[in-house]
Design a protein around this nucleic acid. Structure first.
Lengths: 215, 215
DNA sequence: GCGGATTGTCATACCGGGTGCAACAATAGC
DNA sequence: GCTATTGTTGCACCCGGTATGACAATCCGC
């Protein structure tokens, strides 16, 4: 979605004034400043100045100041969401259960990270952005959680708002976040996908067996 | 902490101007307005007017507009936190593990609710306060999660920031929240403590066995 | 090359949450 | 009545976020 704004829709360019900046530029400027002064000590005006653009323009590229913090993570969340929407087949071509689908979606989403975490995760403390990340997470993850809950509700024919459908996705996603946050700080890191799977697989197993279809 | 502001420290009254309001009054006014117009459509000025007090005074009783939303829930979180700090013994007088301690703390904290959820939970949708509750939860729950992670770190002699210590508390607390949010909407409700235990016990069991001391 | 149509940028004003401060009001104790 | 103490109030301010109207720079048809 960030790329859709930077490049014009159809081809290279249409009519109209050409863009003077890009979301990438602004995000970079913001992250620089966050690292230099800390998230809370950076105002949107500061970001605008650093990016060589006006305050209004910043908001035409970003929805909020926190966006810069979330670019990399949002991308992973989006990958997980897409994986969750695609038809779910396991290695042998059998349909996957909702819990397994969520696990694989998360694990697959962070696979591109390999063993090197996104800067914002590694330097969250330096940016004093831990609170912002913590508090912003629920809103950003909600679509993912909701989709998983919906699939689980279908599978267990329960209401999506019922505990049977709503609890496991929240727990698994929250665990993945905590695990990845911790993983990003470890000195000798396994691949992110390994760390994520190790953290959530036990929970997934528990969620699978306990609330089996129609208890 | 709310009571400490309303009543003067030592005894009934000392010198100085007597209080013209109380945090309870303001919270009630706020909740009334939230129910009438929705959380987002109520400004702090509205709350001040309704409570018969000035804007500044509102902030001298409440830290933020969201406080009114959180009074009942904060109380439960505080109960859980205190339970977690107290020495942990199970029914037979044996010391409890960190995971069990967290489970019992949460279950015990919501026990006073019986089968009737706090209004803010039951009427969250009517107040359009679901987002505010969702987004405010991490900050309010962090102390609880951190204490549990610390205990778990000691038990497994791992660093508190390591996945082994950090993941399980987050997952359990998140699951409890999701379960109680869903529980508050169910028509035929069991006691909150029952719903909470049912949701988190399987996860607790998984957290106990998988990451056993020194894997 | 000229005149739209189109698109992006900017300045400005505004709203609402939250903080800080100085003036003022109301009490207790002397 | 005076003073110390404590609460309340109004105000100015900062910041994030939204909306708007003027202006700038491009493309396209002529």
């Amino acid at each position: 979605m960030a790329a859709g704004r930077t490049q014009r829709r159809g081809k290279g360019r249409g009519p109209g004034r050409p863009r003077a900046s890009s979301s990438a530029t602004i995000h970079e400027a913001a992250l620089e400043l966050f690292l230099e002064r800390g998230y809370g000590a950076v105002s949107v005006d500061d970001i605008a100045r650093r990016a060589g653009v006006s305050r209004g323009t910043v908001f035409s590229y970003c929805e909020s100041k926190a966006d810069a913090l979330w670019v990399a993570l949002d991308a992973a969340i989006a990958r997980a969401g897409e994986a969750l929407e695609a038809p779910q087949l396991d290695g042998a071509g059998r349909a996957r259960g909702a819990i397994d689908a969520l696990v694989e979606a998360i694990v697959g989403a962070v696979e591109p990270w390999g063993s090197t975490p996104p800067v914002v995760l590694r330097d969250a403390r330096a940016m004093e952005a831990e609170a912002a990340l913590r508090d912003g997470a629920p809103a950003r993850l909600q679509p993912l959680v909701e989709r998983a809950a919906l699939a689980l509700a279908l599978e267990r024919d329960a209401l999506p708002e019922s505990p049977a459908a709503a609890v496991a996705p929240v727990a698994i996603v929250a665990a993945a976040c905590a695990a990845l946050a911790a993983w990003a700080l470890e000195p000798g890191r396994p691949p992110a996908s390994v760390a994520a799977r190790a953290a959530i697989e036990p929970l997934a197993a528990a969620s699978r067996i306990h609330n089996d279809p129609r208890a």
